[in-house]
Write a protein that binds this DNA or RNA. Structure first.
Lengths: 157, 157
DNA sequence: TTTTAATTTGATAAAAATTCGCAAAAAAAT
DNA sequence: ATTTTTTTGCGAATTTTTATCAAATTAAAA
């Protein structure tokens, strides 16, 4: 993790920005909760535990900055809040989400499923693809099983 | 267009809702600007031209209702506003977007590019896919050409 | 056709998320 | 040590969306 932060520190410096304590605290939170998809507010609350003096605006500014540098992805699942997602090391842009319509859970897929599709888009629409967002909405494994169980229960009753 | 509205009227009635003049005006706007991706505010202004007495809240309510019934898709390109997009007739969910990072234009693709990908997701992650959102970010044809031209110009200067 | 009940609406207030303005603090450059 | 630049924290302001509620509209019942 230290190493990862150092890497990002370099990227910041390369663009003329500094790794301030506030920015480091924010990054630490993002790293610690890499699996999650935190909103700015959520990041703020978590950072506050480490550095109580930090302001919400600073968190927003930091997240903006990291987004601009391509260190995090700003995503939106349609619930009215922006969420921030640390990019995996070495991976350009390929990472997708499975959003469960029942329980709201968000699972991540780190596999590139779109190589062929991108090729089609580039050729057929003459569109130079730089990045993409792919989200599937549906029912996760858990909820499928839960639904099955509760249906069985109803039958018994 | 009349026909399309009538079809939707039936869908509304089937769910116990009425096609009020306000709702019809909203639908008309959505139909007239099918190519665009209007925000609630934009829809509101356009509807106001036809029916000046309409309130913003009603437009929001109507768009919500239409979203719930699956007549429109609520999408979010990350610019902080929800946009609403009439679904094509007969087409379930397959429609994607090309968002240009230079000029902000949004092009629509009405082709299903994800049949294979969905199959993989269903199998590998045991996730029952109901819908998806796929957006490509990149540079549109126009901007590519413009960039080419301006580069040539610089060379001449 | 009048009465009654249920839906829908418009206006405005309220809420939620994000950005702005600006003086103070911190860091870097001179 | 001073000056300049960046960054921060705070609160106010903005923006987008939702909630409230009485009035208007529509459908149903009598």
């Amino acid at each position: 993790m230290r190493q990862r932060i150092n890497q990002i520190k370099k990227e910041l410096h390369a663009q003329g920005y500094k790794l301030t304590p506030q920015r480091e605290a924010t990054l630490t939170v993002l790293l610690e909760r890499e699996e999650d998809h935190l909103s700015a507010e959520e990041v703020f609350l978590l950072v506050k535990e480490k550095a109580p003096e930090i302001g919400l605006a600073t968190v927003y500014r930091t997240l903006d900055l990291l987004t601009e540098l391509g260190i995090v992805d700003k995503i939106n699942f349609g619930d009215g809040v922006a969420r921030y997602d640390l990019r995996k090391e070495g991976i350009d842009h390929f990472h997708h989400h499975l959003v469960c319509m029942e329980c709201g859970s968000v699972e991540e897929i780190i596999e590139d499923l779109l190589v062929d599709v991108e090729k089609i888009v580039e050729e057929k629409w003459q569109f130079r693809v730089k990045d993409h967002r792919l989200t599937f909405h549906g029912v996760c494994k858990n909820c499928q099983e839960a639904a099955l169980k509760s249906r069985k229960k109803v039958k018994i009753d």
